[in-house]
Design a protein around this nucleic acid. Sequence first.
DNA 1: AACACATCTCAGGATTCGCCTGAGTGGCAT
DNA 2: ATGCCACTCAGGCGAATCCTGAGATGTGTT
Lengths: 207, 207
Amino acid sequence: MDDHPVFRSGLVRIVSQVPNLEVCGEAETAVQAFGGITRLNPDLVLMDISMPGKSGMELMQDLHALKPELPVLIISMHDELLYAERALRAGARGYIMKQESPDEMLAAINKVLSGQVYASPRTAATILDSLSRPRSAASTSVLGKLTDRELEILRLIGRGKDTHQIAADLHISLKTVDTHRSHVREKLELKSTTELIHYAVRWVADE
Amino acid sequence: MDDHPVFRSGLVRIVSQVPNLEVCGEAETAVQAFGGITRLNPDLVLMDISMPGKSGMELMQDLHALKPELPVLIISMHDELLYAERALRAGARGYIMKQESPDEMLAAINKVLSGQVYASPRTAATILDSLSRPRSAASTSVLGKLTDRELEILRLIGRGKDTHQIAADLHISLKTVDTHRSHVREKLELKSTTELIHYAVRWVADE
DNA sequence: AACACATCTCAGGATTCGCCTGAGTGGCAT
DNA sequence: ATGCCACTCAGGCGAATCCTGAGATGTGTT
């Protein structure tokens, strides 16, 4: 699943070239993906987590709750260790970046299919490192203190969305978005709304 | 040029399917692209620009300085009118989003190849609208429409100051700052406060 | 099983903020 | 002198924000 048709086309081609692999379905949105997965019952799901509207992370969690044994490989466009860790924690079996070569993509796919977990060496090293030092790092950055939902809202704020749009996108109450905003402001020690937006925009700018 | 090999692969396939189109080279980085373009002398360049990094924008300008007549179609992952306008101003002949379908990609490519400028209907409408308002011919940018005071306010907003701080800094009434803000919003056609801050922060970021 | 804890969700009320209308002053050009 | 523009500010109304509190769910602990 990916909301970039051309990228998806390229990925399908790469996967199809391998004899024992076959693409049984594609999806552009979270709902399409969910429907397709329940209907087609695939052996593996390739998923981009940076998608418009619904959070890919949320879909990841729902999917994992529905089919815990279904391996999912996350294909992300950002090199965020933060995302990788959260994705794996949400039940993903692998995390790879869009920048990677087709060969590396196939390697990741095969590894996940065989039951192993895939992560780039750098990602793996950092995650293992953070596990060995549970509390000291306290998350390399203040952003680590934020929950998945809070991080998602911060990202949407950074993209220029106001509270109403965010509520609509996430299908939750305006009041809920409000609460998340407050928590983000509190955790990040931002005094005003302006500072919050300022921080969010700058953070999103250097994803 | 794109730093996502799989996306590039998909794009190459789509372009290759059209009889009279041929891909003569690919590049992953700016330097590769520059070398390839001077060596292969293509009729058209398809380029992804990761705007936040700003390097794509600079490359666009350099490229245009080197070969002003070479048409460039920007493929961006951002649905940002601000980016589209900047890209076209930097010499690009078209601006399309990664979310678009292969058909739309081909339509854009053909349009640019035939010498026309491509932009999505929404993007085109906004840009044309801004051009249809005569105003001072001296202003190459929408920012030119702003008065000195308004520009100053916008800069302070971009630095993360809220209305109260700005009023204090400038030793004027909160209401006056309020009025300036309204005028800025009006001239820049920004719908909400969030968009205003969003615009301001990014403008300040690449002063 | 019982418990504490975190997360996500939402509401009500107090307050502030943003937005719109209107308006006064001073500079500058025709 | 007149018109235009930039800058300044106030009042009022609706909207957004901030704070407090709280229910539901899931997770991990004892």
